[in-house]
């Protein structure tokens, strides 16, 4: 299934690049998509892949919302977070998840590491301070300095 998806992606790129939907051109595109070397490795399951793709698509409008919040937000606070990640063997899923997390302006992936045998993302977060805690003393904000 991953094979089919990568072929479809290559065909899409070829069509967008040439902007020509004649049969001969599409045939050349199909031949190129099949003949170019494919990535090796374990089989990629389809379900998590489609879910990660959907998350990456949803992240685009969400990113604009967060950008507006960041512009109108005033003072900011920085935090270091850790979120659970998928298994590192599913490289395409990891790629899409990193894309979705980094695309949104609040969060930025710093790397993938392993805690107690489970993979996690190390994430840096920058978000506007919530209004009720803006007058609170600085030490009470839950920030873990790495």
């Amino acid at each position: 299934m991953g094979f089919l998806l990568s072929c479809l992606l290559r065909l899409l790129l070829w069509y967008l690049l040439t902007a020509d939907s004649s049969a001969v051109n599409l045939l050349i595109g199909v031949a190129l998509a099949l003949l170019l070397p494919h990535a090796e490795g374990p089989r990629q399951p389809l379900g998590p892949l489609l879910r990660a793709l959907w998350q990456a698509l949803v992240a685009v409008p969400q990113a604009y919302g967060e950008a507006l919040a960041l512009i109108g937000g005033g003072r900011e606070q920085e935090r270091w977070l850790e979120l659970p990640a998928s298994a590192p063997s599913q490289r395409l899923v990891i790629f899409l998840e990193v894309l979705a997390i980094t695309l949104t302006p609040f969060t930025l992936v710093l790397g993938l590491s392993r805690v107690d045998g489970r993979p996690i993302y190390r994430i840096h977060q920058l978000r506007p301070m919530p209004r009720h805690s803006r007058t609170a003393p600085k030490g009470t904000t839950p920030s873990s300095e790495d």
């Binding site: 990535a39 490289r91 395409l92 990891i94 710093l110 392993r114």
Partner: peptide, 24 residues
Amino acid sequence: ASCSLPPPHEPPRERTAPHRSDRS
């Protein structure tokens, strides 16, 4: 972001970061 940080000081130095292998 990940390159500008100093390397993480965890004892097992395993780099499982999704490097460019999936850019193929």
